[in-house]
Simulated assay, not measured.
Amino acid sequence: MTAPSNVMEIRDLARTFGGGRTIFGTKKPELTAVRGVSLDLRMGETLGIVGESGCGKSTLARMLVGLDRPTRGAIRLDGEDLSASGTKALARRVQYVFQDPVSSLNPRQTIRAILEAPMRHLLGLGGKERLARLEKLIEAVNLRPEFLERYPHEFSGGQAQRIGIARALAAEPDVVVLDEPVSALDVSVQAQVLNLLDRLKQERGLTYVFISHDLAVVESVATRVAVMYFGEIVEEAPARQLFRAPLHPYTDLLIRSAPVPNRRRAAAKGDSGELPDPYDPPPGCPFAPRCPRVEADCRAAMPPLEAKDRGKGHRAACLHPLPLSAPTSQPHEPG
């Protein structure tokens, strides 16, 4: 069996805010939110991206769909570099589902107008074609046709998120970036939306980038997981392998810290829980001040993200990874 091809290749992607100098020559503060991320997105997979708040997940997501321009690096789709081509070039192939479903919809437009916009501006479809596709689209996300004439404020959070998913699908993308798509929803509604996303992926041959801080959700939907810390990928592996036997101490900390029913949250010895100062990043591994396995060489240079002797496709940016026999948390059920 041949390996799935890469639909998207991310190379050395970085995003810096601020910087430069004032008119008086004073240097302005500079913050690098994403620090040289390189990833391959394989056709038909669900790539989960996890990490604490402030690690750069959402900034990365915005660059992948063209809502933000990278400071450096490339985003290639089928070998074509679209990172410098503007929003429209990426939007034709990559669409976005936002975290807050209601506020992501224009309150002054009907659902019909919202869903027709991608068809008109990205696909150039005429009125009859749009009408035919609208009927199929609204049915695909389990909503009634009369909803097309209503406004966003008339819907619940779960219904609004279904509309957001329909809007993303209206452009017929190859890749859908889902940025915390169920975090604002009730648990019962989360399950419905996740089941819908899985069905649409199978029916339409979609590829997902699923960004979340909820490890239980990511564990249940992702085929592969990349862990971000301080703007960098520190570990990448098939989902089952990563949750069963993480290599990076930060990944292990995330898994142990996840709330699971009937289990006490593990306390990490010596972990302050504080991220480094983004305006004054430390040399070496940014997790070193929090790491229980830190050595002097960890503070000298950032370890490369490279394959370890743990199975195919398992990479970690760690000079002293966890041994295979290290105890990890038991896999947990979504809840």
Rank of each mutant, 00 (worst) to 15 (best):
V227C: 01
P281L: 08
A268L: 11
G273H: 07
R264Q: 08
D277W: 15
P249I: 06
P249V: 07
I255F: 09
E295G: 11
K269T: 02
I233D: 03
T251Q: 01
R263S: 10
N262K: 13
F287V: 13
R290L: 11
P278K: 12
E236F: 01
A226R: 02
I255M: 14
L254T: 05
V221M: 08
P238V: 03
R256V: 00
A222E: 10
F243H: 09
R265S: 02
A288P: 14
G270S: 07
D252I: 02
Y250W: 08
A245M: 15
G284K: 02
D297M: 13
P249G: 03
G231C: 08
Q241S: 08
A296V: 12
P283M: 15
R264T: 00
S257D: 03
A239F: 05
A267D: 05
A266F: 14
G270A: 05
Q241W: 07
Y279I: 12
V221F: 01
Y250N: 01
P281M: 08
P276I: 09
S257N: 13
E232Q: 14
V234K: 04
Q241F: 03
D277S: 01
H248P: 02
V221K: 00
P259T: 09
C291G: 03
P283K: 11
L254W: 01
G284F: 04
P261C: 12
A267C: 03
A266D: 10
A237Q: 01
R244Y: 13
P283S: 13
P286H: 09
V234F: 00
Y279H: 07
P286Y: 05
K269P: 00
P259K: 14
G273Q: 09
A239G: 01
L247H: 01
A237P: 01
I233E: 02
P292W: 12
V221L: 07
E236L: 11
V260H: 07
R293F: 15
P282Q: 03
A239S: 10
P249K: 11
A237T: 05
A237H: 04
A222I: 04
F243P: 04
R290N: 07
L247G: 05
P278Q: 13
A268Y: 15
F243S: 04
K269G: 00
P289V: 06
P246L: 05
A266R: 10
C285S: 13
R240C: 09
P286Q: 06
N262L: 15
R263T: 09
Y279K: 10
R264G: 06
I233V: 12
E295F: 10
C291I: 11
P238T: 05
A268Q: 03
L247S: 04
P286G: 10
R240W: 12
G270Y: 06
P289L: 11
T251M: 06
P261V: 13
A288V: 14
G231M: 06
P246T: 02
V260M: 12
F230E: 05
E295K: 14
R256N: 13
L254P: 01
R224C: 02
L247R: 14
E235D: 02
G284R: 03
P278S: 10
R224G: 02
K269A: 07
R293D: 12
C285F: 06
P276G: 00
C285K: 11
K269W: 00
D277C: 08
G273Y: 15
N262G: 14
A267P: 00
P238F: 02
I255E: 00
G231T: 06
P281H: 12
D297R: 14
V227F: 02
T251F: 03
K269C: 01
R240A: 12
R265G: 10
A288F: 11
R290Y: 08
N262T: 05
R265M: 13
V294F: 15
